[in-house]
Simulated assay, not measured.
Amino acid sequence: MEIKAYLNKQRSIVEAYLEEAIAKPVGDFAGHIETMRYSLFVGGKRVRPILCLAGAEAVSCGKCDIQEILPIAGAMECIHTYSLIHDDLPAMDDDDLRRGKPTNHTIYGEAAAILAGDGLLTYAFELLSNGSSQRDPAVTLQVIHLIAQAAGTFGMVGGQSLDMIYEGKQVAYETLKTIHKSKTGALITASVVGGGLAAGAAKEHQQALTSYGNNIGLAFQIIDDLLDVVSTTEELGKPVGSDEEADKVTYPSLFGIDQSKKMAEQAVADALESLAIFDHHADPLRGIASYIIERKY
């Protein structure tokens, strides 16, 4: 399949949904909503929501109702965007550019940016639990629990905490894996598994999607680390060399560029192997795995 065409099509679907689903900047809370919408619509590849849709497609053999999956996909993008707003703050990574545009706090101030992130995180769970779905409420609860775990203490937030704690320190490979599996991989895995669960994934499907998500999450992070070394600010849409400047341990810093590329390639191979249980309806997931290795920004 032509993966770039697929990604562009799915991104348009996700963005159209988000445009309708997210509150408009009117009334008493217009200023706060404007800050939320700024970061949500400033750009981005929408990888997590697209993975959510692709996971559902693989499990249902293309027969799922996309309108049932879009609230989950939209929630994943809200959570991801909130994490970027907070990552960019002066107390964290202190970045001025994100997706090639000024970061939220450089336009609206730190307090407004913190609240924008808080608003997006909370809005995600409003989307997940709005009650309009026709699926079994027990499945919806399972999806919400999965995403909450991936976003919280033992997932993305915990991983970011470890990332901050170990800045400037020598860490073992096992610690690096824990940081990246939590900070980056958990939400990627939850995206694809959450879509699968909503589409009725059996146990073996859940296990396959979990393995796939874990492996592409690893590949995604390794490539991110590499791009911070070999890319440019214009290509990446944010400052390059920030990992080295912050003295963060990364795959290139531990293994070098060539070995890191091989590790990313192996992770993608393992991800593709995980999908053997699925037919051609999982081809979007296969294409996304390969795309991760090829991406330049």
Score class of each variant (00 low, 15 high):
S133Q: 06
H145V: 07
S161A: 14
E126T: 12
V192D: 09
I147S: 01
H145Y: 06
Q160Y: 05
R98P: 01
K169N: 13
K169F: 11
E204N: 13
I107G: 07
Q149C: 06
N104K: 12
T153G: 01
T153L: 09
Y166F: 15
A116Y: 12
L115M: 13
R98E: 03
L176T: 14
L162P: 00
L128M: 13
Y173N: 11
G117F: 01
G117E: 02
Q134K: 12
G195Y: 01
K169Y: 14
I165L: 12
E126S: 04
G194F: 10
Y123A: 13
T178A: 10
K169E: 15
A150F: 00
V192Y: 07
T122M: 08
I188H: 13
G152D: 02
T178L: 11
N104T: 15
L115V: 05
V171M: 15
M156N: 04
N130C: 09
S129W: 02
L120D: 03
G100A: 09
G200T: 12
A202V: 07
S133L: 08
T175W: 12
D136F: 00
Y123V: 03
G100Y: 01
L187G: 14
L115H: 09
T103E: 04
E204L: 06
L197M: 15
T122L: 04
M156G: 02
N130F: 00
E110V: 12
S182W: 06
S129I: 01
G152H: 09
V171G: 05
G168W: 06
V193W: 11
A111M: 04
G168L: 05
L121M: 15
Y173L: 11
A138Q: 13
G109V: 15
G168P: 07
L187F: 02
K177M: 12
A148L: 12
S133K: 03
K177F: 10
A186W: 02
H105T: 11
H180M: 10
R99C: 00
L162E: 09
K101V: 10
I114T: 11
G152C: 09
A202Q: 14
A190M: 04
G155A: 07
H105W: 06
H105R: 10
G117T: 07
M156P: 00
A190Y: 04
T175C: 07
G200P: 07
A198N: 06
I107W: 03
N130Q: 11
A112P: 00
T103F: 05
E110M: 10
A172G: 12
R135V: 11
K181R: 15
H105S: 03
A172C: 05
I107K: 15
A199N: 10
G131I: 07
L176A: 05
K101L: 06
H180V: 01
V143H: 00
I147R: 04
E110H: 08
R99A: 01
V139E: 09
L127E: 11
F154A: 13
L141E: 14
A198H: 02
G196W: 09
S161C: 12
H105A: 08
V143P: 06
G195W: 02
Q160H: 05
G119T: 14
P102T: 08
G158W: 10
K101I: 06
T189S: 13
G109E: 05
M164Y: 12
H145L: 12
L141V: 11
T175L: 14
E110G: 04
A148Q: 08
A124G: 15
L176S: 08
